[in-house]
Computed example of a mutant assay.
Amino acid sequence: MGAGLVFFLLGLAHGAGDENEGAIARITPIHAGAYILTGAAVAGLFLFAPFAGLALFLTLSAWHFARSDCAFSPITRYAIAGLAVGGSALFRPETTADVFAVITGTDVPINVVRVLALLGLTGVGCALYALMRGLRGFGHAVIALASVALFHPVLAVGLVFLIAHAVPVQQRQMVNYGRRAVWQAVALPSAVAAAGAITMALLVATGQLGMSFAIALGFGMATPHMLTERLER
């Protein structure tokens, strides 16, 4: 599980810059403030209605992965989205339910896991189709499929996020804008986010921060990035 969280940490930089009008730049203080306020609102939702928070996060995740601007074919992106959100429910339903129980603080209805498993099954079908047709990015879809089939849900989703989403997006950014421009844009926000995540993990490990509050903060601060997905694409 710890390794999966590290993969999420490594992928932070892919969304740390402001991409607009054919350029990438560091987010402005106003942008950062709006991000934090939105993240705090979502964290509050996780604290007071954790099941609703989880449903929102999973829905946005599926949409975000499916629209991921990483030069993959649409079918490949649908495969990665389905596997990221529902693959573990398909291959490891009981373990996935246990993870959801930790997140929400209560047992999640089995029908929720079954619905997610159907999404995972769709992802499997799309991944196999992408492989057979040699669609752009099919190798990443195959890696996503192998990850959810072989590993614990947290590790699997962390791998899918990093290898099939964050890294390809950042590679596309570097091709479009150049390495220097990308790192100038994302370095400081990424460092701040990483420091915050590490500090939170240390506080939980030393008993100074409750797990439910840390989970709410983690999911809350991850959500605004998905909400700012460029709608014009």
Results as ranks from 00 to 15, higher is better:
S68N: 07
F57W: 10
L58I: 14
F65E: 05
A81P: 08
A52T: 10
L54H: 06
A66T: 05
V85F: 09
G53F: 09
S61C: 12
G82W: 11
S73I: 00
R77E: 05
A71I: 07
A81Y: 06
Y78D: 09
W63P: 07
H64F: 09
A81E: 03
G53V: 09
T59D: 08
I80T: 00
L54V: 08
T76P: 07
I80V: 02
A79Q: 01
A71Y: 13
F65H: 10
L60H: 11
I80L: 00
R67E: 12
A81F: 05
A66E: 11
T59K: 15
L54Y: 08
A52R: 10
W63Y: 15
F57P: 02
R77P: 10
F72Y: 12
F65S: 06
A52L: 11
L56N: 06
F72I: 00
F65P: 13
Y78W: 15
H64D: 03
H64V: 02
C70S: 14
Y78M: 12
I75R: 10
R67I: 03
C70R: 15
R77M: 03
F72E: 03
I75N: 05
L58V: 13
R67V: 03
W63E: 12
G82M: 10
I80K: 01
L83Q: 05
L54P: 01
A79G: 04
Y78G: 14
V85K: 13
A52C: 05
A52M: 08
A79N: 02
P74Y: 05
Y78I: 07
A55G: 04
L58Q: 15
T59R: 15
A55F: 13
R77L: 04
H64S: 04
S68D: 06
L83A: 02
P74K: 01
A71H: 14
A84I: 03
A55H: 10
G53D: 04
A62E: 14
G82I: 06
D69R: 10
A84D: 05
V85H: 13
L58R: 15
P74N: 01
L58M: 15
F57E: 04
L60T: 08
A52G: 02
A52E: 04
F72N: 03
F57Y: 14
D69N: 09
T76I: 00
F57A: 06
S73R: 00
S61T: 15
T76N: 01
F65V: 02
T76V: 01
S61I: 07
S73N: 00
A84R: 11
G82C: 09
T76Q: 01
A66S: 12
Y78F: 14
T59E: 09
L56E: 04
A84N: 09
A84W: 07
S61G: 13
S68M: 07
I75Y: 08
G53H: 08
I75C: 08
Y78K: 14
G82F: 10
C70E: 14
L60Q: 13
I75V: 11
